[in-house]
Design a protein around this nucleic acid. Structure first.
Lengths: 146, 146
DNA sequence: TTGTATGCAAACATTTTGCAGCGTG
DNA sequence: CACGCTGCAAAATGTTTGCATACAA
C-alpha cells in the first residue's frame, strides 16, 4: 500500500524487476517466474507473486487482465497507456493514450462517482493473424468484455 | 460459437436467464448459482457455469471482469455499454456508451490491428462510498488496470 | 538479535472436465 | 433408442498463506 516508497531490493526483487523491464510483451506471473529462474534458479513462485504485488503497489509495475479470464499480466510501463489485444494470438500491444479525460468528467457528472481513472482495451486481430486468416483462437468469441 | 441461435430452454437454463435478467447488479457465477438455487434447488454449479458460457456465446449475456483478479461477472444487458466500478464496494454501474468509434479507426490505423471492439471501464468511488469516506477496500490500490 | 525475505508445500478459489444417469423427442 | 442435459466429484488453474529457515542491519 505504500506508494513510490523505496523498497528493499533483494537479488530476487531486482531479478523480477529486470525481467519485467526487459520484457516487451506482457508476461504472466508464471512467465516472469520462468524467466527469472534463468538468472535466479532457486526462486519460488510465491516470491514472484509477492514481488509482483509489491512492485504493483509501489507503482513500479502495472497489473493487467487481458479480458479472457486467465492469468494476470504485468507491465513495467507504468505511464498511462492502453492496449490492443489480438483475438487470435492473445498478444497485447501498448498504445499511447487517447484523450478520455474530458469523458471522465462527463461520466463523473452523470454517474455521481468520483472518477479516478479508466482502463481501456481494444480488441481485434493483429497484422500477423489477419494474414494467417486465423480466426479467434480458443473460446474467445463473445467472451472478454472488460 | 453460435450466435443468436435458439438454444434449448430447459428449466435450469430458464432459471439462470431469469436470474440474470432480474439482477440489476453484476453477479458472479457463484452468486447466480446461489440465486438460481432458490428456484431450482438441485442445480449444480457445473450446470450454472455451462449455462452462463452458453448464454454468453449465444449473445444473450455478457461476461465481465471487473479488474480485480476475482471471479467473472455476468450482465444480461447485451447492448454495447461500459461500466464504472467502485473502488470501495466493488459495485459496478452500467453507463450508456460514449462514442469511441472514431477512436477505433484511429487506433486501427496506427496499430495495424483490425479493431473489432473495445472494453472501457472507469474506476472511482460511488456516492455511498464517498459519503462513508471508506477508502478503497481490499488490495484495490494499484491493481485493476484492465 | 530482531525483523524481514525466501522457499516449499499446502490451502484456496474459480472454473473445467469425466462420467453415469435421466428425460425427451 | 439416441442424444443432449444434468449433477456429482475430481481435475486443472492461478494465486495466496503458513511456516521454518536464511539473511541482513
Amino acid at each position: 500500500m505504500n506508494d513510490q516508497t523505496d523498497l528493499r531490493l533483494t537479488p530476487q526483487r531486482m531479478a523480477v524487476l529486470a525481467v519485467l523491464a526487459a520484457a516487451r510483451d506482457h508476461p504472466t506471473a508464471a512467465e516472469v517466474h520462468e524467466r527469472v529462474r534463468t538468472v535466479s534458479p532457486g526462486i519460488g513462485s510465491a516470491t514472484v507473486y509477492r514481488t509482483l504485488a509489491l512492485l504493483v503497489s509501489a507503482g513500479r509495475a502495472l497489473e493487467l487482465n487481458l479480458g479472457d479470464g486467465t492469468a494476470a499480466r504485468y507491465d513495467a510501463n507504468t505511464s498511462r497507456h492502453d492496449h490492443v489485444v489480438c483475438d487470435g494470438c492473445r498478444r497485447a500491444v501498448d498504445i499511447d493514450h487517447p484523450v478520455l479525460d474530458g469523458m471522465m468528467a462527463q461520466i463523473a457528472c452523470r454517474s455521481g462517482f468520483a472518477i479516478t481513472g479508466y482502463d481501456l482495451r481494444f480488441r481485434g486481430l493483429c497484422p500477423d493473424c489477419q494474414a494467417n486468416g486465423s480466426g479467434p483462437a480458443r473460446g474467445a468469441a463473445g467472451t472478454g468484455q472488460q
